[in-house]
């Protein structure tokens, strides 16, 4: 089957700590840190958005692609819940910026936190069918959480990009499975600035039911068991959920560690499991099996089984590693700066 020819990530350097948000709203930081397993989250500066993150991640994917010519990319799909325009595609800007226009198909995908993995699924399908040589799938978000809401402690920014192809693979996709139902757990109506969620309802019936539904079906379809995998990556709305679902499915802490970014990165929404996959590929070895399962409210999960090839050793250091972006040279901001960066302060026109 088709797979990943090039991958890359991009993250903002700015971070805000849970304590900094908690002190403004009178929340108990230790209980958030323990309850949600979150320490800090990424904050995009005012000149960074889903499009700019997508462009930088795509450039890193091209660096690891072994010389894919952007004009040979037949489609660019960007999954995000924070496309900068309500009407005007993000994909065309990215296509123009990497030099892939004009003979290309572009579409922006939306499905809460699952938009990125659905872009990956569609890109993979186009390539696997032989309809095009390469397709670029990007998962990017600069998500907003309403001030004082639990989501404000987690809503973060980042992007992961994957060039799908059939030859010269870094990781072959062996199996996929998607699992969807109509679930009112999280939404944002048109013209509303912040999303809303169903509180505790977002756990059992939403995240856990769909992640497990897709994961169990994917394990059954593939005939594999959790112990057959070197690594596993799950959607990570906080640090706690992916760890709990991993353990309940039979995966271990060692398997999720490289792609378990939420405690330090926050929830990058569409980017969460795809960026986790980039971090996992960074440390993987030829022959490793990687289990991946996204989750998006509304609701559904896309599962993938990836098998890493020999080429990983050649390409992993052709672009910056995700953990370097996650851990090094960080710029910590206070709540006032964060509020300004995220345009939470009402200004005169």
């Amino acid at each position: 089957m088709a797979g990943i020819v090039g991958y890359g990530a991009h993250l903002p350097r700015h971070r805000i700590k849970v304590e900094e948000i908690a002190k403004v709203w009178g929340a108990d930081a230790p209980s958030y840190k323990k309850g949600l397993m979150l320490r800090e989250k990424s904050v995009p500066p005012p000149d960074m958005d889903t499009i700019t993150l997508a462009v930088e991640a795509a450039k890193n994917a091209l660096k690891r692609s072994g010389g894919v010519n952007p004009v040979d990319i037949g489609a660019i799909y960007i999954g995000s819940e924070s496309h900068p325009y309500a009407v005007k595609p993000s994909g065309t800007v990215v296509a123009e910026a990497i030099g892939a226009t004009p003979d290309i198909h572009c579409a922006d995908f939306e499905f809460a936190c699952k938009a990125g993995s659905e872009a990956m699924f569609v890109a993979l399908s186009h390539v696997d069918s032989g309809y095009m040589k390469y397709a670029l799938a990007i998962a990017a978000d600069t998500s907003q959480g309403a001030p004082s809401d639990a989501l404000e402690f987690s809503a973060a920014a980042g992007a992961g990009a994957f060039i799908m192809g059939k030859d010269n693979l870094i990781a072959e996709c062996l199996f996929t499975h998607s699992y969807m139902t109509d679930m009112p757990d999280f939404w944002r109506r048109e013209h509303q600035f912040y999303p809303q969620h169903g509180g505790r309802f977002t756990g059992e019936e939403a995240y856990f039911a769909h992640t497990k539904g897709a994961s169990k079906a994917l394990l059954k379809k593939s005939g594999l068991k959790p112990s057959d995998f070197t690594y596993a990556v799950f959607h990570q709305p906080n640090g706690k959920f992916p760890q709990r679902v991993a353990f309940e499915l039979g995966f271990t802490q060692e398997q999720i560690d490289p792609g378990w970014l939420a405690p330090r990165l926050g929830n990058t929404y569409s980017g969460a499991s795809p960026i986790g996959l980039t971090a996992t590929l960074d440390v993987s070895k030829p022959g490793d099996l990687i289990f991946m399962c996204s989750y998006g409210s509304g609701a559904g999960s896309d599962g993938f089984v990836w098998k890493v090839t020999q080429r990983i050793d050649e390409v992993r250091d052709k672009a910056v590693r995700t953990h370097k972006l996650l851990d090094e040279n960080l710029i910590y901001v206070d709540y006032g700066t964060y509020a300004k960066f995220r345009r939470k302060i009402k200004m005169n026109e």
Partner: peptide, 11 residues
């Protein structure tokens, strides 16, 4: 060099 938003024609 990074790709960034340069400016916006108001909101």
């Amino acid at each position: 060099i990074e790709f960034r938003r340069i400016q916006s024609e108001s909101d």
